[in-house]
Amino acid sequence: MDCKLSKVEQEAQDFGIDLSLTNYNLSLSLEQRLTNHQRALNLVLELRKAGQQYEQQLKRSTQTPARP
């Protein structure tokens, strides 16, 4: 975006905030914001579950003695 940023916008951007995401959220209705958040939370929980399953699998495979 070429337009000049305000001081707080510049600070947020420098911190790593994606302002296009903020702009998108602000274009949504309140219930749409909550729905999108729940979708994102579900994804985080699924990824976490997949990560835990992968770690368990890894643990099991390192504990199994190698075949000759």
């Binding site: 916008e9 600070e11 947020a12 911190f15 905030i17 903020t22």
Partner: peptide, 20 residues
Amino acid sequence: DKATLRELRVILDRQKNPKN
């Protein structure tokens, strides 16, 4: 909370200065 805090300040700034 640090990222959220910065984002909320932007949102407050937009509310106070709608032209930004």
